[in-house]
Design a protein around this nucleic acid. Structure first.
Length: 552
RNA sequence: UGGGGUGUCGCCAAGCGGCAAGGCACUGGGUUUUGAUCCCAGCAUUCGUAGGUUCGAAUCCUGCCACCCCAGCCA
């Protein structure tokens, strides 16, 4: 599919900068913290960063912002790389790690101290909070604010060599405790964390904060446009301050955009992790998760996700995109390439009384109705077959275009049949429908001119196979499950997963390989499960249903 | 409340002083062996609001209103 990138405010800004010489190249970066899997919001950021670099002939780095070992792990690092690759992006050069710049950060911290721009503070976390003041009241200077450069150097070295306990001391910038911007009230640069780090092991016991690390990481890598979400806007003055004070090799600038939010879903790593930790979903890659790996497992294609991100656009407003737009992008892409097949989810036996008992006819059906070049498949036809119970009614009004006693329906890719009677069990449940084939209707309309009103899918009882099919519905039944003071856990949709243990599938589906996507005609798109599917035990996940304009 | 942001159709979103793009959704109609796809048509006299500047404003100015972010040794 062709994805034509829409214009957005960042493109306009950068184009103007390139034009007037403010910028001479475009280097961006996607900087996840490895503390969870990536979600649809990150996909948008990835498309933005890589897209901008590509559009302007620049480059984009993948950099792990791993400054807080407490919440990070190698598992996430591996997953994130796989997710970015799967989406179809290639980062420039090696994967980068903020942690590989730790020594440089420390050296720069020393520079700040030498400049008199930073000091070691002994206030406890609680005291620091009190000293910080409030939104309307200025803060108070820390009593440790005026320590000498020599003392600060010594104390900082002590922090680094492990002389103090966690929380005992921090390094802070000496800015302005009365600043109306809370971020400028002597922000913390280093804290003591006696923790093993997934990349640096036990080399460090002090770790830089986001504020002290991010801009410098950008500067080291020559990033020109450091794009982040809106909540970092208030940090920009600080970001710039470090760049101005320190002898950094380049001058990156920060730009903010509004994160992509989706209706009926949650885009918060923290909350998504909670769903995983509490066992509400089977894992980060549960097909109901809005994570990239979850959507992959669900059958969403990389192209559809990228297309969706382009459709949703990028701006500085904090909107909520209708999940219908995502669904449209998925269908739009899958419709193009997904081979068609037939599957019956809720089987009802049909016996064709005028068809020979032991005959098995090999019918030929196109793999795609609009793309002949995709070839054909063989679909066996027999006297006994299964249709979906929803496609039959003993009687119905004219709007019902499926099988009804005394009426006709076309069996997709096969004959027109007419239903005669039903057979019921002791409870009065219909267990079988007896019907007849209308002669000479393979590829033709009935000769008597009575055309069937509808078409339904079917699977041969003699040659069809069984498969497990997982049907998904939205994970939350509230359009904004975590808005305001709502507890998203109270809005979980209890029916978000429905497993059909024994669906009937046409035999050609046994050739499916994991992650192959099909359209089960009249039902929707289904993907052979990435992990559980095999020819012996076929397992399909419902990606998304077909658009359904049949209102009833 | 101090500071920083944002307000264009039900939902995204272009627009950058010359007279409201596009997509999603929705509504009609056509094609169709998927109630799918596809096609065609409709869908903001109005841009949070009140004023002002101008021949002319969604675009400039002023006030007001609403919502979001910041008081982690998270990012």
């Amino acid at each position: 599919m062709e994805i034509k990138p829409a214009n957005n405010f960042l493109r306009s800004i950068i184009a103007a900068e390139l034009e007037n010489g403010t910028a001479t190249e475009v280097v961006t970066r996607f900087p996840p913290e490895p503390n969870g899997y990536l979600h649809i919001g990150h996909a948008s950021s990835i498309c933005l960063n890589f897209g901008l670099a590509e559009h302007f002939g620049g480059r984009c780095h993948l950099r792990f912002d791993d400054t807080n070992p407490e919440k990070e792990s190698q598992e996430y690092i591996d997953a994130i790389q796989a997710e970015v690759k799967w989406l179809g992006f290639n980062w420039h050069g090696d994967v980068r790690f903020a942690s590989s710049y730790f020594q440089q950060f420390y050296d720069w911290a020393v520079v700040l101290v030498e400049q008199g721009n930073a000091y070691v503070c002994d206030l406890t976390a609680e005291q620091a909070r009190e000293y910080r003041g409030t939104l309307t009241e200025p803060g108070k200077n820390s009593p440790y604010r005026e320590r000498s450069v020599e003392e600060n150097i010594e104390l900082l070295a002590g922090m680094k060599s492990g002389d103090y306990d966690e929380g005992e001391k921090v390094l802070r910038a000496k800015l302005d405790m009365a600043s109306p911007n809370m971020n400028m009230r002597d922000p913390i640069l280093y804290r003591i964390r006696k923790q093993h780090h997934h990349q640096t092991g036990n080399d460090w016991v002090i770790y830089p904060t986001y504020d002290f690390a991010h801009g410098q990481e950008d500067a080291i890598e020559g990033v020109t446009h450091s794009i982040c979400t809106l909540e970092f806007e208030g940090h920009r003055p600080l970001y710039n301050w470090f760049i101005e004070q320190l002898p950094v090799p380049s001058t990156p600038r920060q730009f903010e955009f509004g994160q992509l939010n989706l209706s009926y879903t949650i885009v918060s790593k923290r909350k998504l992790k909670q769903l995983v930790d509490e066992g509400i979903v089977s894992g980060w890659d549960d097909p109901r998760m809005p994570t990239i790996s979850g959507m992959r497992r669900r059958g969403y294609s990389p192209a559809s996700l990228r297309h969706f991100c382009e459709m949703a656009g990028v701006s500085r407003t904090e909107g909520v995109v209708d999940v219908a737009m995502l669904e449209h992008a998925i269908r739009d892409d899958l419709n193009e390439d997904a081979p068609r097949a037939m599957c019956v989810l809720n089987p009802l036996k049909v016996v064709l009384t005028n068809y020979p008992q032991d005959q098995l006819q090999a019918l030929t059906a196109p793999r795609h109705p609009n793309r002949e070049e995709l070839g054909t498949r063989t679909v066996p036809f027999s006297r006994e077959l299964y249709i979906d119970a929803d496609d039959f009614r003993e009687e119905a009004n004219k709007k019902f275009k499926r099988l009804v006693i005394g009426k006709r329906v076309r069996l997709r890719n096969a004959y027109v049949i007419e239903a005669d009677e039903t057979i019921k069990d002791a409870n009065g449940e219909i267990i079988e429908v007896r019907a007849r084939i209308i002669e000479n209707t393979l590829g033709n309309n009935p000769e008597d001119g009575i055309k069937p009103k509808g078409v339904i899918q079917w699977v041969s009882g003699a040659a069809g196979k069984r498969a497990k099919v997982k049907l998904f519905d939205r994970l939350f039944n509230d359009a904004a499950p975590d808005r305001g003071d709502k507890n998203f856990l109270e809005h979980i949709n209890p029916d978000s997963l429905c497993v059909v243990e024994e669906a009937w599938i046409e035999p050609s589906l046994l050739e499916a390989v994991p992650e192959q996507i099909f359209q089960f005609e009249r039902e929707g798109y289904f993907v052979a499960d990435r992990y559980e599917h095999s020819s012996e035990t076929p397992v399909f996940n419902k990606t998304i249903g077909l658009r359904d304009t049949w209102n009833n």
